[in-house]
């Protein structure tokens, strides 16, 4: 009973409470750069998911073997391996996608979410919880990327996953597919989430306040 709660908690941590994009604001570089379209965002998210889950699993399996003096070097080697694998896989699946993502696939190596998870979580937990946590984190990252990518694609090109939403006469907002657009949309989402969190807090505080009054 308790174990399932823990597992569930590990899983949801990254999706909501510690969302890497909207709460921890980590991994911004690839996020701002590749979220020009929803497809790019999803591919990037899935690539990160693969790397994060695999590297978390391997790091966690080897956690007792690795002396702490060389742990960062070990983690980086492991992460770089899986990034290379993802790099080949994306090339094999679609060259167009590979070119659209450019150097940012290789740059997953330095994505702080992955090293951060390896250091803070995977190196201290057994493989199964570590991987579940990694899956949750990556899903949170995918959600963040997709939130950015979809808005930027809708405004910047009038399409979603390449499907036209407004007809051929749509006026694209060029700024949205340029780098400033990424900052604007990210700022907008952060504003929205902090507004929501604050509103939730206020209603909760109001409810407990009423409760004490009645008691």
């Amino acid at each position: 009973m308790n174990a399932t709660v823990d597992i569930w908690d590990e899983f949801t941590e990254g999706i909501w409470r510690q969302n890497p994009v909207f709460v921890m604001v980590l991994g911004l570089c690839p996020m701002l750069a590749v979220t020009v379209s929803a497809v790019n965002a999803l591919t990037m998210g899935l690539a990160t998911l693969f790397v994060l889950v695999c590297s978390s699993g391997l790091v966690s399996m080897m956690r007792k073997l690795v002396p702490k003096e060389v742990r960062i070097a070990t983690y980086i080697v492991i992460i770089a391996t899986f990034v290379t694998v993802v790099d080949y896989i994306i090339q094999a699946v679609s060259l167009a996608l590979y070119e659209a993502l450019g150097a940012f696939i290789q740059l997953i190596v330095v994505n702080c979410i992955i090293l951060g998870r390896a250091e803070a979580h995977a190196s201290k937990n057994p493989p199964i919880p570590a991987m579940i946590n990694a899956v949750g984190m990556s899903i949170g990252f995918v959600i963040g990327l997709f939130a950015l990518g979809s808005v930027r694609e809708i405004l910047g090109a009038g399409t979603l996953f390449g499907v036209s939403l407004f007809g051929s006469n749509f006026q694209p907002w060029v700024i949205m597919v340029l780098p400033p657009g990424g900052f604007f949309v990210l700022g907008g989402w952060l504003l929205f989430f902090s507004w929501w969190a604050r509103r939730k807090q206020r209603t909760q505080a109001g409810r407990t306040g009423e409760g004490t009054q009645h008691a």
Binding site: Q171, I175, L178
Partner: peptide, 10 residues
């Protein structure tokens, strides 16, 4: 500046 970057043609 925003609309200039967003709608350069218009």
């Amino acid at each position: 500046a925003f609309v200039q970057a967003a709608f350069p043609t218009a």
